[in-house]
Design a protein around this nucleic acid. Structure first.
Lengths: 226, 226, 226, 226
DNA sequence: TATGAATGAGGATTCATTCAT
DNA sequence: GATGAATGAATCCTCATTCAT
C-alpha cells in the first residue's frame, strides 16, 4: 500500500480511504448485530459519527454498503485460503510439497474454521448466496466483490486440477463442476448447521460436528476415490 | 387433530376447514407471484374474498400463513417421496423388491423433479432453510409444518437403514447423520443452481445440469462405497 | 342494507363521508397556509387528528388530496356561476330575461369576485393551470375534478351561444374557442394581478383594479362588437 | 454595468465574465432538460466542469442562477422585439414608416414566435409569472432580470403611445394599463395552450392555433377600435 | 480563487395488526 | 363469526449550502 515512490498518495486520499473503511466498520457493527433489513442508514451514520449524507458520498446505496462488507468477507476467506495453502517452510527441510488433495482438505478445513470464527462474514456470504442476483444491472465496478468470491472458488478449482496432475485426485473430474458442486454442498450443510441445528438436535439428537464431519468425509472420499 | 370421534364433523367445522384452505390458496397465489415480502395481507384478503380481519381468525400472523404454505410444501414433497417409494405392482409378478439404495436414488430424483416442477414450494422450503429458527418461540401447534418436514427427512433415514440392512448401502453410516448431511448438501446445490447459476455460467460456463449430475454422483457413489 | 327507501344511506356511509370531507378540510387548512409543496401529510394528519395511514385510506396520494381540493374549487366556482345566472325573480314582475352578453358579464364579475373572496381556491386553480397535465395517466374516476372545471367553462360556452342567438353577442364567434380564450386571458390577468402586482405598481404605478377593468372592457367590447 | 471606464477591462475580469456565462450555459442545459426542481447544483457544476463551491462564488443561490437565466430570457425577448420593430430599410426607399398598431401587431407576432421557438425561455418566464414575488427581499443588484422584463413591457407601452399619436390606436387608452393587461392576457392564453391543450383538445376538439388566433383578434380589434 | 467533502433536515408511503361493531 | 377502518412506526435518499483547505 505504501508503495515507496511512484504513486505518492495524497493525505487527502488517505483520509478518504480511512473514512471509507470506517464506514464499513460501522456498517458491519450495525448490520451484524441487527441484520441487514433491520439496520438503517441512520444507525450506521450514527455509529460512524457522520452525517447520513456522508454515507452516500462513499456508497451510493445501502446495498452498495452491504456489498462492501461482502467484499471484505470474500477477501478474508480467500486470504485465509491462500495463507493456508502457502507451502510451509519447515525448519531445515525447505518447502513441503503438498498434493492437490491436501490442498482441498486444507481449504475445507479453513472454510469450516471460517464458519466458526467469522460467523458474521460467513452469514454475509450466506445471505448473498440466497439473494437472487442479476449480473447485468450493476455498473462494472460494483462487481468487484463478486470477483473476489469467484477468485475464492478458483482456488478450489486450481487445487482440483493440481490434484488431477499429481494423482491425488481422481482424474475424471471436471474441476470447475466439482468445485462449484462442493461449494454448494458445503454452503448447504453449513447453512443447515447454522440455521436449523436446533431442530435437528431436537428431533434427532445430532450435533453440528457430526454433520460437518460427515460432509467432510463425503467430499474427501469422493475426491480420492480409486 | 380432532381425534377422539372421527366421525360427525359438523358442517360448521367443514366450512371452517374449507375457508382455512381457501385462505392458503389465496396466500399462495399472492405470495408466489409477488414474493413473501411484497405480498400484503390486504392482497391475500382480496384474493380470498374475505375481510382482512378474517385472515387473523384463521392465522394469527402473516408468518403463520407462510408456515401453512410451508406445511403444504413439505407435505407435497413427502407425498411425492412416498408415491415414488411405493413398490410398484408389476402385473402378474407381485411387488418389486427395491433396495435401500434404489430408494435413496429415487428420493433424490424425486427431489430434483420437485425442484423443477414445484419451484414455488421449493422456494418456500429454501426460504425456510435460510431463516433463523427458534424452536422455543412458537406455540406447539404451530410446529406441525416442521414435523412434516422432519417426516420427509425421516423417509431418507429409513431408506438408509433399509439399505444398510439389505447391503446396498455401506454399513458404517449413521443414518440420521447421513440423511441430514445429504439434505443440507442437496439444498445447497439447488440453492446455488437456483440463485446463482447466472454467475456460474458467466464465469465458468457451466450448466445447472452439470452441477446437479455431479452432486448426484457424489451422493450415490458415497452411499454405495465398497 | 336497511332498504326501505331506495337510497337510505347507512350511518357508516355517513361517517365515512364526513371523515372524507373532514380530511379535505384539514388539507385545505394546511395546504392553503403552507403551500402544496411545504405541506406534509403528517401535518394534514395532525390537523385532521387522524393517523397518517388513515389519510391514505381515503386518498391514495397527496396529489389525490390536492385534486379533491381542486374539485371543491371548481365546484364552488361553477355554483357561483350558476347562482348568478339563475334568472332573478324580481317581486311582482316574474323572471327577468337576461341576454347572453349579460350572462357573460355576470360570469366575469363572479369570477373576479371569486378571485377576491376565495383566493385560496383561486390559487388552487391557478396552480393547476400551471401544472403540466397528462390526461392519460389517471384512472377515470380521478378525473372528476377536471370535469368539474370543464363544466364551469361550458357555462361560458353556453352563454356565448345564447348571446349569438339573442343577438347580444357577435354571431361570427366560435363559442368554444372564444370561451377558452377568455378563460386563458382572464387567468393570465388575474395571475399577473395576484403574483406580480407589486412590481407593476412599483414600476408603473398601476392598481390591480385598473388592469382588471381594462381586461373587462376588452372582453366585453369584443363580445358586443358591432 | 461597468460604465465609467469603458476600456481596460482586465483579463481577469474577462475570464470572470466568461466563466459567469459558462455557468449559466451549463445551468440552462441542465435545468431546461430536467426542470428546475430536478436539476441539482451538482449537475450544473459537473456540466460546467467546475467545483460546486465555485458556483456559489458567482451566484449566491440556486435561485440566483435561475434568475440569471430569466434575465437572458427577458433579454432575448426584448431583443427580438427590438429587431422586429427596427424600421426595415427597403432598398431605394429609405425607412418604412410603421404605425404604433403595426408595432403592436409585430410585437405580438414576435411573442408568439418566441413561444414556439424558444420554449425553454418562454417557460422560464412562465415559471416566474407564477411565482409569488416579493420586491423587498432581494438585494438591489439581483433585480436586473426584473428590469429587463420591465424593459420588454415598456416597448409595448411605447408602441401604444406611438399608436395613440399616429392615430392607429384608440386614443382613450392608458398605455401602461393596456400593455400590462395585454401582457397578462397573452401569458394566460399561452399558458393554457402550453399546459392544458391536451385537455382542451380532448373535451372540445380545439387546436392551439385557434385559441392563439382568437386572442390575436381580440387584442388587435380592441386596439384599433373606432 | 477554487474546491468538494460534509451535512442533516425533510417526506411520502406501506402494512401488519387490532378492535369496535 | 366477520369485518374493514384505523393506526403510526419505520426508512431510504436527495440536495442546497457551507467552509476548511
Amino acid at each position: 500500500m505504501t508503495m515507496g515512490t511512484p504513486k505518492e498518495i495524497s493525505p487527502k486520499e488517505i483520509r478518504k480511504q480511512k473514512r471509507y473503511e470506517a464506514i464499513i466498520d460501522a456498517a458491519e457493527k450495525v448490520i451484524f448485530s441487527k441484520g441487514l433489513e433491520d439496520a438503517s442508514m441512520d444507525m450506521v451514520a450514527k455509529e460512524a459519527q457522520l452525517g447520513k449524507g456522508t454515507l452516500y458520498l462513499y456508497f451510493k446505496s445501502k446495498n452498495e454498503l452491504y456489498r462492501a462488507i461482502l467484499y471484505r468477507a470474500f477477501l478474508s476467506l480467500r486470504r485465509k485460503f491462500l495463507a493456508a495453502l502457502k507451502p510451509e517452510e519447515v525448519e531445515g527441510q525447505g518447502e513441503q510439497k503438498k498434493t492437490g488433495l491436501d490442498g482441498l482438505k486444507t481449504i475445507l478445513m479453513v472454510y469450516l474454521q471460517f464458519y466458526h470464527e467469522n460467523k458474521d462474514y460467513f452469514n454475509a456470504i450466506l445471505y448473498f448466496q440466497n439473494d437472487l442476483f442479476n449480473l447485468e444491472d450493476p455498473a462494472a465496478n460494483e462487481k468487484v466483490y463478486l470477483e473476489e468470491g469467484i477468485a475464492a472458488i478458483e482456488l478450489v478449482i486450481e487445487q482440483i486440477e493440481q490434484g488431477k496432475k499429481d494423482g491425488s485426485v481422481r482424474g475424471d473430474l471436471d474441476a470447475a463442476t466439482a468445485a462449484y458442486t462442493f461449494w454448494g454442498q458445503t454452503m448447504g450443510v453449513l447453512q443447515l448447521v447454522q440455521k436449523k441445528m436446533i431442530i435437528v438436535e431436537h428431533y434427532h439428537q445430532l450435533k453440528a460436528e457430526q454433520l460437518i464431519a460427515q460432509h467432510f468425509e463425503i467430499i474427501v472420499s469422493f475426491l480420492a476415490k480409486r
